[in-house]
Every structure is written in C-alpha cells, then in structure tokens.
Design a protein around this nucleic acid. Structure first.
Length: 706
DNA sequence: ACGGCTTGCCTTTTT
DNA sequence: GGCAAGCCGT
C-alpha cells in the first residue's frame, strides 16, 4: 500500500484513501489530479477489494480515457481491463446498444454528426417552405437538448424569432427534426444522453443493472458537466452515492455547451455530507508562470477563492511581445521556435481555429514541423465522410440522409431529378427512401442505374454483417470505382492518401478494440477532432491548437498568441459578465499549460475575413502586474539592431500617470494627437488624419508632448 | 447530368 | 481571404 501513497502529498493521500460516500476534489491546474484518481482506483482495487467491474470513471475525452486506462494497467495490471473508463457519450452508446430497444431504438441506430444534422435540417426547412439556414436551428436544438429542458420550456423563454423565423415555426422545425431522426433510426449527439436518462427513468431494472457496474463512480472535469450529464450522474450514483467528482471551477470553459459551473460549486449541497478535498499545490509550472496565472484568475468576481501554490522555483520571466501585425506575430513565434529547438516540447495556443493559418504558414516556411490539432477533422473530409456514409447505410438502410450522400458518389448516372422523384414516392407511401429505390421501376421510366445501385447496396449490407470495417471499406472501394473517380478530382492524390489513412485507421482499430462495422462507426462518431489519426504528422513537431483543446495538457514551452480585445476576450463574450469571466478562465487555462517558458503576444493589426482591423491589447493583460512580465523585441531577448526589419524598441514607457483631456501625446504608430478622454487604464485620443482611438495606457506606449 | 463559375457567408470555443 | 453551396451553361 505504501507505494500507492508515498509519492503523494497529504491532500492527495486523503483523496486516495477516501472510500464510500460522496467526495469533491477541487484540483487546481497541474495539481496531480489524474495521478490522484488513478491511485485512488488502484487503492480501491488493492486495499478495499472492490472489483474492477464495479468501477466507472468518466472522462472528458476518449483520449483521456485511454490514457487513464493505460496508467491503471501499468499500475494494477490485467484487472484494469475490466474497469469502465469512458466519456459520458461513449458510456451512453454502450448502454443504448444493449438496452436501446426498451425505449424504441432500432439496434442498427446511427449517430448523426453536425453535418448530418444540418442536412436533415435543410430538408425540414424546405419541407416547411422556410427560407432559412440550418445553423441557428441546430444551435437551438443543441441548447434545448443540452439543458434537458424540453421544447415547451425552451419556447417559454425563447426570443420571438429564431433564425429569422417566428418561434412557433421554429418549434415546428424542432418537432419535424425529431421525427426525421426517429424515422431514419438516427440519434444526434445529445440524444445519446437524453435517451439514456429516459431509459433509466422508465426501466428502473435497467438502471439497477448498470448501477451494479458502477458502484464507484469518478467524474473528471466536473466543472464542465451540463445539466443532462449532471442528471445522468445523479441517476447512476443512486441513493448511496460513492461518487468522487474532480474538477476546477477556474477551468470551466464550456459554458457555450451549457456546461454549468454551479454543478461543481453546489456539489456539497447536492450531495450532503460530501467530503471536500483541495489540491492546491502545483507541480507543473515555474513560480513565475504561476504568479501570472494567479494574478489573472483572481480578477474573476464569480469565483471561490483559491490560490495555486508553486512547488517549483522561479524560472524564466514570462515574456510579452507586441507585434505590429499578425504576420509579424507569427514570424516572431516561428523565429523563437527555431531558436529553441525541441519542437515536440512546444505548443502554440490561440482562441480561434482561424488563427492557425498564419502560424502554420510561417512555421512551415521556417522548416518547423507542425502538428495541427483539431482544425479540419480527419473524419470530416469529404472523401472520408463519403466512405463512412456507405458504412452507415449498410448498417442502417433507413438512413436516407447518408443514402442520398452516396447515391451518386462516385457519379453513376443517378441525378437530382431521379432522386427527388424517388424521395417523393417514399414520402407518399410512407416508406423509407431505400424502399422506394427498390421499387424504382414503378416510379421512374429508366430504372436500370437505380436497380444496379440497389444490388450494390444489398451486397454491402451483407458484407457489413460478415466483415469488419477494413474489409468492408475495401469492398466499397473495389466495387464503386471510388479510387478512380477520386483521382480525377483536384487534389485527388491527397484525397486518395486520406482514403488509405482511413483503411489504416480501421485496421488499427480492429487490432486494438475490435468489433463490427457498426462499432467502428460509433467509435468514429464519438471521437473528437482533436483525437484523430495524425497520419503524416512527424513525431518531432510543434503543437498548434485552440485553448479549448489544450485543456488537460502541458508543455515545457507555450506561446499564447492573439491576446487582443475581440479575440480573447472574444467579441461575442464582451457583454455578459459570466461570458467575460469564462474568457478569462480560458486565458488562465492557457497560462497554466506552460511548465518552464511562457510567451504572450498580441498584434496591433490583424486581418479578419481579409479585412484589416486595428486592435487593442486584451484587457486581461492589464491583470498582470508589470514586474511579472518582460517585454521582448521582435528578435526576442537580445535586441537586434542591424537588420532593417527590426523595429526600434518601443519608446520608454510613460509611467502610468494619468492623462488629462486636452493633453498632446505621441503614439508610435498614429503619430501625435490630442487626448479626448481618460478613464481607468484607457485613454481616447484624437489623431489627426487617423481618427479617434481608444488605447490602453499601459501598452499604447504614449509619450506626453509639451 | 455535370462541370465550372460566382456568390455569400463566415469565425468563437466541441463531447 | 477561403470555402461551400447554388447558378448557369453545355
């Protein structure tokens, strides 16, 4: 037993030794959270004689689940394989694949992704003769389902118009969307959880069975659970909850997905008698980095006090670089990275995916290998989606969304007119589109192509039963001329590469997990973009990703770029305090990813949609005491003066003395102007020929003129 | 039926 | 500035 505890601090030990009853582990960034949970599970197995098949651990991503399982296997060996470690959604799929029929699910149900949702919504909108885009309706549907509130409740508070359509009509869109899903034997992502709850509520005996499999429950990243996940947890935990939740309210960054930070803040009310354990010692970051992190997060008003204590020495100062524009910012990042080397130890983090382009460009130009996480999903590429659609239809021929996707891919002479005639027939006779295809000779005059297509599908349906995913996709490729057709297209070679990559991914999956085509499709649907196969990515590469994707990770060196108003905090989050504070948490998450070296940067000019915009530095930078930052020039710590591009060091800062209206000032970029107003750390200055500018005194580098 | 072109929209973040 | 959807011409 000592080896389970000896390497842990007293709070971590307390968590590991906790046995029955509810417990909340408030675990600050880098405080050894995963380690603690892993040790706790090992402790349950070894010392408390709990069976592995009685333990459930819910993680935020499949990747996190995989890593936890791996660590457990190292620690306790074989029994780890019987542990249930998964995300909420993967757990729900497993439950529904077993018991789904109790709530009217067909065994071959498919999971619709965002794309499929949009396609279905477009059909619904057309049917209702509404001229609108699917986007807002998908947002509405997700909102309704993430809260688990139901349509009626949502409608009570909904705005009068949704997506430019009166809300009564929007409600009809919702209903039609739902019945569309049901008719096709499809579920969207959120349905997975909702239907599991329905199953548990209507069939207590099923809940009871699952509870046997989950006598000890762990929920990681509890601060990011939404009301539906909260309810599911409650149901599973039951009357005598052996529930340990782990999280950090300061890292709650999924409010947009209806994650409710109150779930973690109210845990002790929801589960009376819960033990509260705080992990506040940080083992990850140098104390200079940690001081910056603490300074930032303590500015949040809606927050429980908590300070992360450093265990590591000071280290290098946190650097700040002000770039004249986004290009220069990217060039700076690339230059510094070349100087640093050790690419796999470096991450560049940003708020929006769009920011990755410039960075990637400059890094590649500097011959730095790049691993771009999560931007364009592998499984979202058109050719991959097409192939997967064959699988979905073979598993569930009622899926007409995917059927229509493949009907003429590759082109086989079945055009739009033909399809719409057959779809109409299906609607009239109340059958599936595939059934209409079967009786094509009754509907259209030249049914040969359609009939050939039906024969192909029948073969594939059979193949889906008999073979695993790899063999299935190979068969599709052989029988459809998919490869040949792809080669004709622009970037055909690249796309073909992707196809080969899919085959490889399927093969890997069969070796590791194993299972049917349907299982493989589930696993694809549940895999986040950020966890996808990286095929060509070299081992030694710099990681580029959004702040959201960086949660839970750590890197010796981190670049946090684009620290500008309207980007971080994002322009859509400026108006409500909750949103603004979530942005600040996002910044905090970014800072706390860094172990040894942290660079912050912003650009004074940036193109958005190809339009040039002047920016202001992020207000979050003002949260950091100046003595914790070291401002660096375009070439890093050592000033380079000879190169013509080298910008002169900014003028010695004007002390933070207040400016007054009427004073003349000079700005390095805008020239001289007159102060119009000054408030807080901001001044508004009129620059002749440029216009009114609002500037942060701290960063504007204003010089007072006499 | 299909390919090439224009247009319009986009960017918050994702299991 | 890019990308997908929709238009138009063949």
């Amino acid at each position: 037993m000592s080896d389970l505890l000896s390497s842990l601090n007293p709070s971590q030990q307390e968590a590991v030794l906790h046995f029955e009853g509810p417990a909340l582990v408030v675990a600050g960034a880098g405080s050894g959270k995963t380690r603690t949970v892993v040790h706790r599970i090992a402790y349950l197995l070894r010392e408390r004689r709990v069976y592995p098949a009685e333990i459930l651990a819910v993680t935020f991503t499949n990747k996190a689940a995989g890593e936890m399982k791996e660590r457990l296997e190292k620690m306790v060996g074989r029994p780890a394989r019987d542990l249930w470690v998964s995300t909420f959604h993967a757990a729900a799929v497993r439950i529904l694949r077993t018991y789904g029929e109790y709530v009217g699910l067909r065994p071959g149900f498919v999971i619709y992704d965002e794309d499929d949702q949009n396609t279905l919504l477009k059909e619904v909108l057309k049917e209702l003769e509404l001229e609108a885009k699917p986007g807002p309706f998908r947002a509405m549907i997700d909102r309704i389902k993430n809260r688990g509130a139901g349509l009626a409740e949502y409608m009570r508070e909904a705005p009068d118009f949704i997506g430019g359509v009166p809300k009564d009509a929007a409600a009809e869109v919702y209903r039609k969307y739902q019945s569309g899903l049901r008719m096709q034997g499809a579920l969207d992502f959120n349905d997975l959880l909702l239907l599991t709850i329905e199953l548990f509520e209507q069939h207590p005996e099923v809940l009871h069975k699952v509870q046997q499999r989950a006598r000890f429950i762990h929920v990681d990243e509890y601060q990011d659970t939404n009301p539906v996940q909260y309810k599911l947890t409650r149901l599973l935990a039951g009357e005598r909850p052996n529930l340990m939740v782990v999280g950090d309210p300061d890292q709650s960054i999924y409010g947009f997905r209806s994650a409710d930070i109150n779930n973690i803040l109210d845990f002790t009310k929801d589960y009376p008698g819960a033990r509260v354990i705080r992990l506040e010692e940080n083992y990850r970051s140098s104390s200079s980095i940690l001081r910056v992190a603490n300074a930032v997060i303590e500015k949040n008003a809606l927050r429980l006090e908590k300070v992360l204590r450093p265990t590591r020495p000071g280290g290098e100062p946190v650097r700040l670089y002000r770039a004249p524009n986004a290009r220069e910012e990217a060039a700076f990042v690339a230059r510094e990275i070349v100087k640093l080397g050790n690419f796999q130890q470096i991450a560049v983090l940003y708020r929006t995916n769009a920011q990755s382009r410039l960075l990637e460009e400059h890094l590649r130009r500097a011959n730095v290998p790049v691993r771009l996480v999560g931007a364009v999903g592998f499984f979202e590429r058109r050719e991959i989606k097409d192939l997967l659609a064959y699988g979905r239809v073979a598993v569930n021929p009622a899926d007409s969304i995917n059927l229509r996707r493949i009907v003429n891919t590759p082109p086989r002479g079945i055009g739009a007119t033909t399809v719409s005639r057959l779809v109409e027939h299906a609607q009239k006779t109340g059958t599936t589109v595939f059934e209409a295809f079967r009786v094509a000779e009754q509907v259209i005059s030249r049914p040969q192509q359609v009939q050939a297509f039906v024969r192909l599908l029948d073969e594939l349906i059979e193949a889906a039963f008999e073979s695993g995913p790899t063999a299935f996709f190979q068969r599709v490729l052989e029988q459809t001329g998919f490869r040949e057709a792809l080669k004709q297209e622009p970037d055909g070679e690249d796309r073909l590469q992707n196809v080969e990559e899919l085959l490889r991914a399927a093969q890997d999956w069969e070796e590791e997990e194993g299972g049917s085509l349907s299982d493989f499709l589930d696993s694809v649907a549940l895999t986040a973009k950020a966890e996808e196969p990286q095929g060509d990515a070299p081992a030694e590469a710099v990681t580029l990703m959004t702040l959201h994707n960086a949660k839970g990770l750590e890197f010796p060196t981190v670049f946090l770029v684009g620290l500008e108003e309207n980007l971080l905090p994002h322009r859509n989050s400026l108006h409500r305090l909750e949103d603004l504070e979530e942005e600040r948490r996002l910044f905090y998450v970014g800072i706390t990813r860094a172990q040894e070296r942290l660079y912050l940067s912003y650009a004074e000019e940036r193109e958005t949609y190809g339009k040039r915009e002047y920016t202001r530095p992020s207000r979050f930078l003002e949260d950091i005491p100046q003595d914790l930052l070291k401002e660096v020039g375009a070439f890093g710590d050592s000033e380079v003066r000879v190169l013509p591009q080298a910008r002169p060091e900014p003028k010695p800062r004007t002390q933070l003395a207040e400016f007054k209206g009427g004073e003349k000032v000079r700005h390095p970029k805008f020239g001289s102007g007159t102060v119009v107003a000054a408030m807080g750390g901001e001044v508004t200055v009129m620059f002749p020929g440029v216009g009114l500018k609002r500037l942060a005194v701290k960063f504007a580098g204003l010089e007072r003129l006499e």
